[in-house]
């Protein structure tokens, strides 16, 4: 699992991971492996206005979420917390549980290595990619402000 950003040092980060998606699937936490990708249907993340939701998913080791669509606040919080997400209805329909999937977030290319199918999500503009790649909005802000100060 990636250890970007300061929040990984917070004990509650791991505590949250233990409860990731438990209402939906009690076995999820025991089955999920670092680097796994969640593929979901519509309005993923609905009902959670808190930043804890994407933090829990990230802490459980999930490297990316692909969905037909995302709930608005979850979408914002995922980017701000540095959880890569991609909106791609075609991929969400075609990918089956257990398929090996690779994602190039910079280009929005999703490849189902099991079936060979390739999908294209709208890639994020560079500043959003920076936020995700650098571990979240706060981490990216620190870097940008430090550069401004000439550090």
């Amino acid at each position: 699992m990636s250890e970007r950003g300061g929040e990984t040092h917070h004990p509650s980060f791991y505590e949250l991971a233990k409860h990731c998606l438990e209402d939906l699937d009690k076995t999820f936490v025991s089955r999920v492996k670092p680097g796994d990708i969640i593929v979901a249907d519509e309005n993923f993340g609905c009902g959670s206005s808190r930043e804890h939701a994407p933090v829990a998913i990230k802490a459980a080791g999930v490297s990316c979420v692909i969905a037909k669509s995302f709930a608005r606040i979850f979408y914002r919080n995922s980017i701000n917390m540095g959880l890569p997400i991609l909106e791609c209805p075609e991929a969400a329909d075609a990918i089956s549980d257990g398929d090996v999937v690779s994602v190039d977030a910079d280009t929005g290319t999703i490849t189902d290595e099991t079936t060979g199918a390739v999908f294209h999500a709208q890639p994020f503009p560079p500043f959003i990619q920076e936020i995700i790649n650098e571990g979240g909005l706060v981490a990216r802000t620190k870097r940008v402000l430090a550069e401004k100060r000439g550090e």
Binding site: S49, E51, I73, R76, N77, N80, L137, V138, T141
Partner: peptide, 8 residues
Amino acid sequence: VGSTDAGV
């Protein structure tokens, strides 16, 4: 917005 966005 949320408090993280406000803080940033």
